[in-house]
Design a protein around this nucleic acid. Structure first.
Lengths: 351, 351
DNA sequence: CTGAAAGCGCTTACAG
DNA sequence: CTGAAAGCGCTTACAG
């Protein structure tokens, strides 16, 4: 910090009166050094605040690392997972020169078995770090257990599975995102008026996540002492026709002021509102995906709550890198910011 | 991309039937290579998509780079500039191992002369890249001209000065941030009701920026065809007493529904509203600074519009790095996202 | 216009 | 338990 001389292994070796090979052994906690020399070297390291040159380290080390990622495939239904994939690729480009290679695996969000098949493939390989989306909670736990058996650090993105020894989690804090959504809703509904929460999903595993958001949403009004009416609609299909039918039922003879969709499927609701030419219902939902953006721009959707899926994956990979290459401590939980996107600021948003 | 062999200077030299020194000359556009060999080498580079190993490059190059930054000092009045400083320091830590050292200079936002004094000091040194906040437009232009004379690339953050040959600008797009603010206001005021815009500043140079935001703000209502009344208050002092007086005048016998402050000084307005126990006026302003946050948390301030000042500085430094170290093209204008911060999502925000 | 050699700060066998 | 030497992929003088 105060402009000290920068020293290297050579200088340390000289001062300690040993060879650089011995210094290297101490620096990297390799075995086979007497306690006396070890201490002598460590003292010098401390005194001069020696910082290894990471460039030289990676260049000299012929050891290559293999990172593996396992996330949902981009599907026709949603291009959401394109963003995390982009984040992985950005990280890949950045750490490639440091001798790290990537293997990318994908599973089908509608087919739990594909997740299992893929993780079994991964476990057969020689990998140094894993990043995955634990979309199917139980299977994710099994995968995690296998990783631990093999002492492979693993990182979660997008959703967390508490109670495991993952290196870290990078993603949203769901409760607060629902809570934030409620604040926005609060500018739109008045006392006595109605809001409608809609959960659209056919994967049982995702219900937990949706309900966390819902809890946050409800908590806001409880805490603020607002007397709005909250209705709820569960839709267990993800095709427009089913959703259309459900909405027709729910909105009939009903004076809903605002709809809060707990995941990225609000484009279906928007499609419905547009089709029926309903203009006096505000709509808030999640995620910066193509289908939502077009409705945001035309004003059918009022707010999108987003959590930088690209950055999630990028940071997740970098956590593995920090741990395995830089040997740094990693913060276990890294919550993303809760971003509020409107028609006006969306063009500046980096998803 | 398709798992080709990774080749290095050695392989290229071998294939071209020359020495690696010659390859190096071509790769780095140094003089003294015949056109024939140059072409031969470039063809191989292209054919194998040779990517230089940046680690080895920096390690081998004994050339050190000096980056200089010139930003406002953190003052009693506002800790805003702490964030960009943190961003610079983060970038510094990251690129230090690549042989880059930093000199940080500061000026007083209330004293234009300090900016001039500092930049003259900088110009006397041997520097390779400069990042600065062009708060005083004319003086910034002079500084920029000197940089160009010396062929030193320079980057702007926080506010732009169009028409110059800066390497890039990283910061907000002001018009759109005002426009976004208006959208939020629009949920609060109804037709026929009143909004108040307040510009608080005593630096004439900053007025341009405030007015850009104001233009965006007004444009929204014009475009949406909303018939709200917009009043405006100019305050040319930045102490509470002056502001208190101005507010008392402006709010007397007036039914303002929402106040939009065009910079970070809304904490003064919040202080006033709190003091006078006025609860039915919503307040929107700029910037994630301590003084605003406390009012945000108690609900006096409804929304804060923020633009990641830390990331601005970080990205600004990295632009110099990309240009000078990686020899990459740099996008000239890099607008930050326009972030909407509420009581609920503020604790997840990374300013 | 071109090449042989040393070196950047580390790690990695190998030898003792 | 320890050291001498080669090498990672580049750049930098120096010599021709």
């Amino acid at each position: 910090m105060k402009g000290e001389e920068i020293i290297g292994v050579k200088q340390i070796a000289q001062m300690a009166g040993v060879s650089i090979a011995t210094v290297d052994r101490v620096l990297n906690n390799r075995i086979g050094v007497s306690e006396t020399t070890k201490k002598k070297i460590n003292d010098i390291v401390k005194k001069y605040n020696y910082q290894p040159n990471i460039l030289a380290k990676r260049l000299a080390s012929r050891r290559l690392l293999k990172f593996v990622t396992l996330i949902p495939a981009v599907s026709e239904e949603t291009d959401y997972w394109q963003a995390p994939l982009n984040g992985i690729e950005q990280a890949e480009a950045e750490v490639k020169p440091f001798g790290i290679s990537f293997d990318k695996y994908y599973f089908d969000l509608n087919d739990k078995q594909t997740f299992i098949t893929q993780y079994n493939k991964i476990l057969k390989k020689n990998v140094d770090g894993i990043l995955f989306a634990p979309s199917f909670v139980e299977d994710a736990k099994n995968f995690a257990a296998e990783c631990e058996k093999r002492k492979i650090p693993y990182v979660f993105i997008n959703s967390d599975v508490p109670g495991l020894n993952n290196l870290c989690y990078v993603g949203p804090e769901l409760f607060s995102s629902g809570y934030t959504g409620a604040h926005l809703v609060n500018y739109i509904v008045k006392d006595g008026e109605k809001a409608l929460i809609i959960n659209i999903s056919k994967i049982p595993d995702s219900l937990y996540h949706l309900e966390e958001k819902e809890k946050g949403f409800r908590k806001f009004f409880k805490k603020e002492g607002k007397k709005i009416e909250i209705e709820k609609l569960e839709i267990r299909e993800t095709d427009y026709l089913s959703i259309r039918k459900a909405l027709t039922g729910a909105l009939k003879n009903n004076d809903i002021k605002v709809i809060f969709v707990t995941n990225s499927r609000e484009f279906y609701v928007a499609q419905y509102l547009k089709e029926k030419k309903i203009k006096n219902i505000a709509l808030i939902g999640y995620d910066f995906i193509e289908k939502n953006l077009s409705y945001l721009e035309t004003g059918v959707i009022d707010f999108l709550i987003c959590q930088k899926p690209k950055a999630q994956a990028y940071r997740g990979v970098m956590a593995l890198y920090d741990k395995l290459v830089k040997n740094e401590e990693v913060t276990k939980t890294h919550y993303m910011s809760i971003d509020i996107i409107t028609k006006e600021n969306c063009k500046f948003y980096k998803n």
